[in-house]
Write a protein that binds this DNA or RNA. Structure first.
Lengths: 338, 338
DNA sequence: TTGAAAGCGCTAACAG
DNA sequence: CTGTTAGCGCTTTCAA
């Protein structure tokens, strides 16, 4: 790879001029002719700045890491796309890290920035990483922004408008005439789960419906957890006629469990899922979902992060646009007895 | 972050000693006492080597990129896990890149290594990137290994044993007594598709069954493509009683299309899919699949790559272990008329 | 308007 | 057994 000295030699100028011209240094004050010559030679030699040299000199890598518990989801793909977009705008590169290794005691994060591999990161916490663990990991580090989840006593996060989304899902069932509506939510101490549950409760409350503790399950977002939730729901005396599942994957599990139990969807029980992804179109019946603006979360998160790295105060953002959107498919219908 | 000079000062030795001790330089020949002191101080100061400094000096980043058209699949997660494992063994880091931007004219790849961000990459080509385009991109670059696909006239690849896998899927239907077996394969010019089709043909041939051109569709691996394939298959005079779909996602689309057409699976048509992933358990009916060793592909690919970077000649590998495995679920049964 | 030179943190060849 | 030092490619201050 061509380097600065090479360009300088061929263009008959010094390296410093080359560097300044190539970086569009505002104080270029180089003769236009010289400038053109430098650019010309750089192009001819197909110059690309050596990353390590620059990083060493600037003490900044211009790279960010996006840490997630799970890459293999279309939802993550959206998040990534948004993050990548924002990174490009600011000439940053985004690396992806698996959160498996991020546990309370781990110093993976500190190492990543300590080594200077990345300047900061966007962290999507694992659902069962406690608030304390999280805080001990990231403290008040300005080089981190949390996504989809946040933690008390710490600024720097971008989350979905979970309450509006969950409320929308619940309202859909209410509008269809359902009165006994169950919630299959996340694990008890997650703030995400709390917000979604709040949206659910809000919708019930506004409709004047009673919220029954026996109708809310808090086992988590996996298909298996939802299967167990359905089993317990079917075991109760007053079966729900509709259920909102706080996650698509859970909803898929719920459908499986209902089918196994011989309960028809939607005629006996309606199911609506939080989050939309392509499989929802291919389940049986096809899932009615609420689509959330994940792309925006990624976008805002890295913008925030870059702002923070630039010294701006950390913020806690809630993405409200585009608004949560109901995607009507076939898993919801009016209750039989309505 | 603590740096070498700092450690040297506190330990009362020179930087070179520190560097050698910390890197486990075989020629350490340092007094055990000195060694311990250095390690001690390094730990106290929580030292981590600055990445840029090292990369600049060594002219190697010790990082690899895994380039893929699609992160959002459990299959990719497996690949990644394998790659990460192998990378760790050799003290490399793996970055993930999206292949969207990798088109014929693009210099993204060249740039990545040109900048010195990565030393090489594992490339999973996009299905509709032609052989020529691919070759023009990677030429005979020793810093690249191709996964799941390969291209004539180029060494350095790791692929699945597609023919055995597809053969296994087909044999399963044959064993159930099916005679008219269709294939929903990949796009025509893909070498992956060719190998899978070959496995299918081989199974038919060994069983003495005739292979009918009207029963093989080559529209690609997406759910939509498979839906169209099913429609055309149902339109033909002699309907198949079993179909092997060369990809899970396609199989999910196939199930949707069959349901829409009112064709019962498996009583009227059996469906078996190539590749296993969690959704297969949750479709209706649950999909019988052939599970392929994706993890191993990732593992071997980065091992190969690291070998190549070390100057060893490029190889073309086929992963045969663990063997393709039939995962029996509910989408296959003997044909009605058997 | 341009050039010389220092120095980012590290490794390794060489000298003691 | 340990220290000195050059230099990787780059940016930037200072001088010309």
């Amino acid at each position: 790879m061509a380097k600065l000295t090479e360009i300088a030699r061929q263009a008959g100028v010094s390296v410093s001029v080359v560097s300044r011209v190539l970086n569009g240094d505002p104080t270029v004050r180089a003769r236009e002719e010289t400038r053109q010559r430098v650019l010309q030679v750089a192009k001819e030699l197909n110059y690309t700045a050596n990353y390590a040299g620059r990083a060493l000199r600037l003490a900044r890598s211009k790279a960010l890491a996006l840490i997630t518990p799970n890459v293999s989801s279309p939802l993550f793909a959206d998040l990534l796309a948004g993050a990548t977009q924002a990174a490009e705008e600011a000439d940053y590169t985004v690396l992806i890290g698996l959160a498996d290794t991020i546990t309370a005691g781990s110093d993976t994060l500190r190492r990543l920035v300590g080594e200077g591999r990345v300047d900061g990161f966007v962290l999507q916490r694992h659902d069962d990483l406690s608030d304390q663990a999280l805080e001990s990991l990231v403290a008040n580090d300005a080089r981190v922004v949390l996504v989809t989840s946040r933690t008390p006593g710490r600024r720097g996060s971008v989350v979905l408008d979970d309450v509006t989304g969950a409320k929308l899902a619940t309202e859909h069932l209410i509008a269809l005439g359902h009165k006994r509506i169950a919630l299959i939510g996340g694990v008890p101490h997650s703030d995400i789960a709390r917000r979604r549950e709040h949206g659910y409760a809000l919708a019930l409350h506004e409709a004047g419906l009673r919220r029954r503790e026996s109708l809310v399950c808090r086992l988590g977002y996996t298909p298996e957890a939802a299967e167990r939730a359905i089993e317990s729901l079917l075991g109760t005396g007053a079966r729900p006629t509709g259920v909102v599942v706080a996650n698509v994957n859970g909803a898929i599990g719920a459908l499986t469990a209902l089918r196994r139990a011989g309960v028809d969807v939607p005629s006996e029980i309606s199911v609506v899922a939080y989050h939309d992804e392509w499989v929802a179109e291919h389940t049986w019946p096809a899932l009615t979902t609420v689509k959330m603006p994940y792309y925006q979360v990624g976008l805002q998160a890295v913008r925030s992060l870059i702002d923070q790295l630039g010294g701006k105060p950390a913020q806690d953002l809630v993405v409200r646009e585009p608004k949560p959107e109901l995607v009507l498919r076939s898993s919801t219908a009016p209750p039989k007895t309505a």
